[in-house]
């Protein structure tokens, strides 16, 4: 059969087919395979714990056993093996340690935009017992990221509770898809870079805005995507700019629950 008679993708691509041969193929990587299996197992464990269904739990137990045999050659003699989540913590450092800070900050893109738009700081309402000034937990987290983000365990021993807390965060991290983990990794590197002080400032400002809301609302604000966060900031910073300064009165009290208040004037184009 001649090429003209054949009708397949190779014929369709013609001379380009050979040129594509120059592209490399990914080499087998047992480490990558092990990481994938572990991430799936952690994710499955988390989901099955949430759903409390017997079948997935049995499956996860089996996966965990396979992982143990896959990775645990050297540890075969041990009476117990660390959980998959515990073993993954060093690989996912410093994301695990700073997961809350990174989730709140969102992404490098979001912080760039917050910096570019020069939002004002939120006004504090002492009567509502809102925090004012720097948040020590936030500053400590940033300091730790910038300090080389060593595994906390190498600096001080962890209590059982701290270890469980880290493992829970590792499970939360495993629930994110790869691109989200990558986004948080980029963010961690950006915040750790001393040249990116403007991003830290933006994260600090956003943290202050989030902290100015009540705890229930904070969770829903953090779950917003970049566009929605910016829309939220646009709306509330404009609302704040219209509030008269001076003694507080009831009408100044920000809405405590539900969606952000509607405005009569349309939002300016971004």
């Amino acid at each position: 059969m001649t090429d003209d008679e054949r009708d397949d993708p190779a014929t369709a691509l013609g001379d380009i087919w050979e040129a594509l041969d120059s592209l490399p193929r990914s080499a087998p990587s047992p480490a990558a395979t092990a990481t994938t299996i572990e991430m799936v197992a952690i994710s499955a464990q988390h989901r099955s714990a949430v759903a409390a269904r017997p079948a997935p739990q049995a499956w996860v137990a089996a996966v965990t056993a396979v992982i143990a045999s896959f990775l645990g050659g050297a540890a075969a003699g041990r009476a117990t093996l660390p959980s998959p989540a515990a073993r993954m913590i060093p690989q996912q450092w410093p994301l695990v340690e700073h997961l809350e800070l990174l989730r709140e900050a969102g992404s490098v893109e979001f912080l760039h935009e917050v910096d570019r738009r020069s939002y004002p700081a939120p006004r504090s309402f002492p009567m509502l017992q809102q925090p004012t000034g720097a948040d020590p937990a936030f500053e400590a987290s940033i300091e730790s990221l910038r300090g080389g983000a060593l595994l906390r365990e190498t600096q001080e021993p962890l209590s059982g509770e701290q270890r469980r807390d880290l493992e829970e965060r590792m499970k939360d991290l495993a629930q994110l898809d790869g691109s989200d983990r990558r986004r948080l990794g980029e963010l961690a590197r950006a915040l750790a870079n001393p040249e990116n002080e403007h991003l830290v400032e933006a994260a600090r400002l956003w943290h202050a805005w989030v902290a100015s809301r009540d705890p229930a609302e904070r969770r829903s604000i953090i779950s917003l995507d970049t566009d929605e966060r910016l829309e939220w900031l646009d709306r509330y910073s404009r609302l704040q700019s219209r509030m008269p300064k001076g003694p507080f009165s009831d009408w100044e009290r920000p809405q405590r629950r539900g969606p952000p208040p509607r405005e009569e004037t349309p939002a300016p184009p971004r």
Partner: peptide
């Protein structure tokens, strides 16, 4: 990104 996507497929 390719490794992340491959992991996502297996998940």
């Amino acid at each position: 990104t390719a490794e992340d996507l491959a992991q996502e497929v297996f998940l």
